[in-house]
Each structure stands twice: as C-alpha cells, then as structure tokens.
Computed example of a mutant assay.
Amino acid sequence: MFDEGIFIKGNKEGINAVINMDKFKDFDEMLENLIERLKTGKKFYKGATLTLTTDLKHINERQMRRLKDILFDEILIKDCIFNDKEEKDGKAFSGIYEGRTKFLRKTVRSGQSINYPGNIVIVGDVNSGAEIFAAGNIIVLGSIRGHVHAGTNGNIKAIIAAFSLQPEVLQIGRFITISPDGDKPSYPEVAKIKDGEIIVEPYVPNKYIY
C-alpha cells in the first residue's frame, strides 16, 4: 500500500517504487521519505535494479542527478530506471529525461550487449565489441568505442552523446555510420539526424535537454 505517497515492492526483477509527488510539498520531502523507506531494507536492495515510476515533470535535471547519486551511493543499487507516469505507448523520446531512462554506473565491456526500450545513460565507457541499443537517447559519460544504436523503434529524433565519440558503428533510427579515421576531438560530442544524414557536433549545454 502507499505510505505517504510512496509504494515499494520487490520481486525477482528488482525493486519497484511508485511515487505520488502530489503527496509531498517538494522534492526534498519526497527524497527524505524515499531514502528512509529504502534504508530499512538496504541489505536486500544492495546490487538490485530499482525501477522508479513518478511524474517526471515535477523533477528537474539537477534533482534527478542527486536522486540517482544517492540511490547508487547510499542504497548501493546496481541499476536505476526512471519511468514517467504520464508516458503513453508509442510516445517519442526527445529529451534525455523524457520517458523511461535506465542509468548504469559501469563500463560495458566487449561482448556485452544492453537493450532498453527508453533512454540509456551510462556512467562509464562503452568498449570496442560492446553493443548498446535504445529506443530513446544514448548518453555516455565516458568513451564510446563499440556499436551504439539509438532510436531502435525508428525514432530519428534520438541523439547519441559522449565525452569521447569513437564508435565502431553508430546508428540512429535507420541511419548508420562509422567513426572516421584521424585525430579525435578533446571535447564532448553529440550525434543526431539532420537533413537525412547523421551529423556530429560539439555538445552545447542545455541545447539537447528539453
């Protein structure tokens, strides 16, 4: 049952938490209650995947980063997935924090493959030989050297961004390219579709977050 706007249930898939933001005066009150609830079962949650469902329009980018960091550092979860209660089937993913978002704090190594029907944010690298498939955007806080495919559902508005963009194969929707030879820039880059082709340009803060 709901306890002050928070419902938590564990299963073989991990932990499911549903939050009703209308029950709290602000984000800080919600966060305090959520962490208090999770700490009571911390030994069971360590290394688990947490799926958090709420109305994401009430949580901004800074707050989401703060929530994610606390879940990783204090509750010791392995993965974190954000679901938007307002999301409708077939809705396009146009921003990093729109729709479902899966956070991974690890390096994806050669031979590993990740497939998710939403956005994927990786705090780590995507090594050569690794594969990432996302219906939404792919954001890597590290280097991309493997195969990355955003917009697997045909969404050509998806983007792929990384601190170092050196993919073996990069695909958005039906469009595909490979990383050119030569020197790599020392700044973050974003790949997107423009005029029917994939272009790569320097990352500009706030330009791609709606």
Rank of each mutant, 00 (worst) to 15 (best):
G5K: 13
E87Y: 02
D84I: 01
G41M: 11
Y97D: 13
L141E: 09
F72D: 03
T101Q: 04
K9M: 09
L104I: 07
N206M: 05
S179A: 09
D89K: 06
Y116W: 15
S128T: 13
R37Y: 09
R109A: 02
R66E: 13
A158T: 10
I114C: 01
I132L: 15
G182T: 13
A135E: 14
Y203C: 10
G90Q: 04
S128W: 01
N115M: 13
N20W: 02
G151K: 12
G196C: 12
I59H: 11
G173D: 10
D89L: 03
N60W: 14
K43F: 08
G10V: 00
I70M: 12
G124C: 04
D26M: 04
K194D: 13
E74T: 13
G111V: 05
I75E: 14
K12M: 03
K68W: 07
T53H: 06
H149W: 15
Q171K: 14
E168P: 01
A161M: 13
N115Q: 12
E74S: 14
I156S: 06
K192G: 10
Q63K: 09
K207A: 06
G196M: 11
A17N: 07
R65Q: 12
L71S: 02
D183I: 08
E61Y: 05
I193T: 04
L52S: 00
R62I: 11
S110G: 14
N137V: 08
G99F: 00
E4H: 13
L38F: 04
